[in-house]
Design a protein around this nucleic acid. Sequence first.
DNA 1: ACCTGAACACCGTTCAAGT
DNA 2: ACCTGAACACCGTTCAAGT
Lengths: 244, 244
Amino acid sequence: MTTRTRRSQRRTEALSRERIVEAAVELLDAAGEGGLTFRALTERLATGPGAIYWHVANKDELLGAATDAVVAAALAVGPTGPPDPPQDGVRAVALGLFDATDEHPWLAAQLSTRLSRGPWASVTPRIFESVGRRVRALGVPEGDWFTATSALVHYILGAVGQNAANTANARTLGPDTNRAGFLDSASRAWEELDPDDYPFVRAVAKQLRDHDDREQLLAGVDFVLTGITARHLPGGQAHTPPAT
Amino acid sequence: MTTRTRRSQRRTEALSRERIVEAAVELLDAAGEGGLTFRALTERLATGPGAIYWHVANKDELLGAATDAVVAAALAVGPTGPPDPPQDGVRAVALGLFDATDEHPWLAAQLSTRLSRGPWASVTPRIFESVGRRVRALGVPEGDWFTATSALVHYILGAVGQNAANTANARTLGPDTNRAGFLDSASRAWEELDPDDYPFVRAVAKQLRDHDDREQLLAGVDFVLTGITARHLPGGQAHTPPAT
DNA sequence: ACCTGAACACCGTTCAAGT
DNA sequence: ACCTGAACACCGTTCAAGT
């Protein structure tokens, strides 16, 4: 899958943190979060648990490193060409993370878990930096950088998590159940809710079935971008009046 | 804490799914997600694991039920008075979930986990319904209900998760470390990042330290609301032009 | 129908011992 | 400095047996 220069030598290769993280990602990709165990890891790396603990503090740190590696790769594709218009740059970040969770279904849960662990986790600065540079380029006044960037990051991660689940869950339902089939059954579940308690959800059940994840993601990004520019940029007075 | 009619009878009380979920919430509140074990649960309920499995399929379902119970309580406070203006209603939902994660620090991670499990989980329809009714009341055309509601829900859950972590993590650092202290150390961590890789993050480190969680949450809600109304409602032409 | 509790398979982590 | 692998404490879950 990865275009990595893996030599033909197999078990003689020295153990390293990088090699361990790589194996962890492979296990996660193959069998989800439950597939990453120290037992499976020792077998794949032909070593004992103590060797792994020499390079890695514990399982949580290992999961964090795997998440970070995948996110770094996803965000690295951006700035090779000429600088995008800021709006396009934000969209690219969102789609990059979307595609990464599509390739690594376990990533969505990890992203939200890490994010809700506080701002140290290395994924947080990484994503914040990517989005924030675009916010700055947008011309948002410096005092509002944090607020605007936070809003975008929170939205993107929430949406990416949910949307990735749609395809990931489809695989759970069976080998040949595709995303459409999953959304179809989810839509039916919504339609069977109590009409008194859930009139709105029932009313949008068909829209759930027919929606496109990427369009949905980008629509939300545009909502936030519109809100940011309307509030902070010259000429934007389309402000929802606060209730008095 | 809860205004529940708990009789003085203690261990004679019959076991029930409701009683089990209640005990699970208590354990989660007391010791976090790691505190919920079947061992601890059997001890608290003075029973064996088999008895619990009679009422509950497995631990995951139990966690889901605990999450659902807490979310239901948080969303139930709303519609007693006269109907709010829709914008205020959305803000109330966001603040309600914010306060709930403040009382139940384990909730944030659960919310994102459940949400990224797909649209069946009972929390999803509940939150979707609460927000969606306000979107409808806003005058958004029916064809855009799903898109607009999804954007709001994704944002709210992302923001609530992150913000709740700020207070929850503060407790981890020590008994008398408050939220300000936690944000202060997080802010310092941001300032110590590599200036070449993270110029933006370093520039907003002070804003991270000084920001108010609730203001931040509501600012983001307003961004999304502004974007929705600008796009879908008469008179809103403050539309960011898509890059050509 | 509801509950008991011993037993099972499996997990993350440790650590004395090796090289 | 780096690795080995047996051992430990703990976990979710099962199930034959009771009432």
